[in-house]
């Protein structure tokens, strides 16, 4: 997993609430047995006509936002299916950070496994960032994980909260499984005790 430290880039505004993982990556693209290559199908049904041509007014098809690295989105982003294909598709497109007032639980966790930073901010802050994102490609937003701030193109900074363990893993690009395997002795001990207390499991 790639580290996430700071990012300065174009932010695309997607004010729609309840953007679900079926929208982010429709099911016909879940048939892959790989993690890569999903970026071209990110938001597929919102982004392309059924003949495969681009829908011109979709935000990521507009010239200013084709290289967006940040999304500023409406409430409850990533709701629905647990598919990790959603963060895989975002990452493959080039999105490394999503800002919203709230995220669905599974999507939120999936982001951290893939080097994507989901930032939760209050409505007023998201509104301000949405306005900034609407300015287009010349307005670059900066996300700094170490200082836990998102800064607009005109220097207005918003601080956000994040779980310290998740922050640590993202800043250092750490592999969860490796960390857990360091605790193998604890798992062995738990299994030994559980074999006595709950032998039917």
């Amino acid at each position: 997993m790639d580290k996430f430290t700071t990012l300065t880039g174009i932010a695309a505004p997607m004010p729609l609430v309840n953007i679900d993982t079926d929208m982010i990556i429709p099911k016909q693209f879940l048939k892959t047995i790989k993690r890569s290559g999903l970026g071209k199908n990110l938001f597929d049904e919102m982004r392309y006509n059924s003949d495969g041509s681009e829908i011109a007014d979709f935000i990521l098809n507009q010239p200013a936002y084709r290289d967006a690295e940040i999304l500023v989105a409406g409430d409850n982003f990533g709701c629905g299916s647990s598919r990790e294909h959603a963060p895989w598709a975002l990452l493959d497109f080039g999105i490394r950070c999503v800002v919203s007032t709230s995220f669905a639980d599974i999507f939120y966790n999936n982001c951290f496994k893939n080097g994507i930073l989901p930032v939760v901010l209050p409505q007023e802050a998201v509104d301000a960032l949405m306005e900034d994102a609407r300015k287009g490609a010349n307005a670059r937003m900066t996300v700094d994980l170490e200082s836990q701030t998102v800064t607009t193109s005109d220097g207005q900074a918003f601080g956000f909260d994040i779980d310290p363990f998740k922050k640590h893993c993202l800043l250092n690009g750490l592999d969860d499984i490796g960390l857990t395997l360091e605790k193998s002795a604890s798992i062995d001990a738990y299994e030994k005790t559980a074999a006595q207390s709950r032998p039917w499991v």
């Binding site: 993690r35 647990s82 598919r83 990790e84 966790n109 999936n110």
Partner: peptide, 9 residues
Amino acid sequence: GIGTSEVEH
């Protein structure tokens, strides 16, 4: 529910 990385975990 969990994502694929957590399935592997």
